[in-house]
Simulated assay, not measured.
Amino acid sequence: MSVPASSRRLILLVDDDTLLLDYIATVLRHAGYDTVGASSAADALQRIAEREGAPQEPGFALALLDITMPGMSGLDLARRLKDHTEVPFMFLSSVDDAETARQAASHGAVGFVVKPVDASRLLPAFEAGLARADEIRQLRSTEANLNAALAAGRETSLAVGLLMARYRTDRITAFEVLRDHARASRRKINEVAEQLVAAEELLNSLHGAFTARLRGK
Rank of each mutant, 00 (worst) to 15 (best):
E127A: 07
I11H: 08
S73V: 01
L163Y: 06
M72E: 15
A174P: 03
N190P: 00
D83L: 13
P88T: 10
A209F: 09
V160E: 00
Y23M: 11
L150R: 13
N204K: 14
P58T: 05
R121I: 05
G153S: 15
A152K: 10
S94D: 09
R168Q: 14
P70S: 06
I48S: 06
A193T: 03
A152Y: 00
D22N: 13
R29E: 15
D15F: 04
S205T: 12
Q46E: 11
F210C: 04
L130M: 10
R121V: 07
D170I: 07
A174T: 04
A104K: 02
P70F: 10
L62N: 02
S7I: 07
R179Q: 15
D15L: 01
E50H: 03
D22F: 07
T142N: 11
S73Y: 03
R154A: 11
G32I: 09
L146S: 01
I172L: 13
R79N: 12
L77D: 09
A133P: 01
T173V: 07
H84M: 03
L28Y: 04
G59L: 14
R140D: 07
I136G: 04
H30F: 09
P55I: 02
S157P: 00
A199C: 05
D83I: 06
P88S: 06
A125M: 05
L10G: 02
L13K: 10
V114C: 14
V14F: 01
N204M: 10
L162C: 09
L28V: 10
A199H: 10
E200S: 12
L77P: 08
A144H: 05
E200L: 04
L81M: 11
E57H: 12
R187S: 14
Q103H: 10
A61P: 06
A165R: 15
G74Q: 01
G53W: 04
E143F: 03
R8L: 01
E201A: 13
M90N: 03
K82E: 08
A49Q: 11
G53P: 01
V117M: 11
A49D: 09
D17G: 05
K115D: 05
A184W: 03
A152L: 00
A119Y: 04
A63K: 08
S2K: 07
L158R: 13
A104T: 08
D118H: 13
I136E: 12
A63W: 07
G74D: 02
D96H: 06
N145C: 00
V192R: 09
V197P: 13
A182W: 04
V192E: 12
F91I: 03
L206S: 10
L28P: 05
T18C: 02
V14L: 01
N147A: 13
A131M: 05
V114A: 09
G216K: 15
L13G: 13
L45Y: 07
A193S: 12
G111A: 02
E50C: 01
Q195S: 15
E127V: 10
T26Q: 14
V110T: 10
G153Y: 02
G32Y: 08
G37A: 14
A98H: 04
E52H: 07
D118C: 13
G208S: 15
A193M: 04
R79M: 10
P55W: 12
V95F: 08
K188C: 00
R213P: 00
R187A: 15
S185R: 11
E191M: 05
L65G: 01
T100S: 12
K82C: 07
E99L: 11
A133M: 03
G153V: 01
N147G: 02
T100V: 14
N204P: 00
D76Y: 00
Y33D: 03
V3C: 08
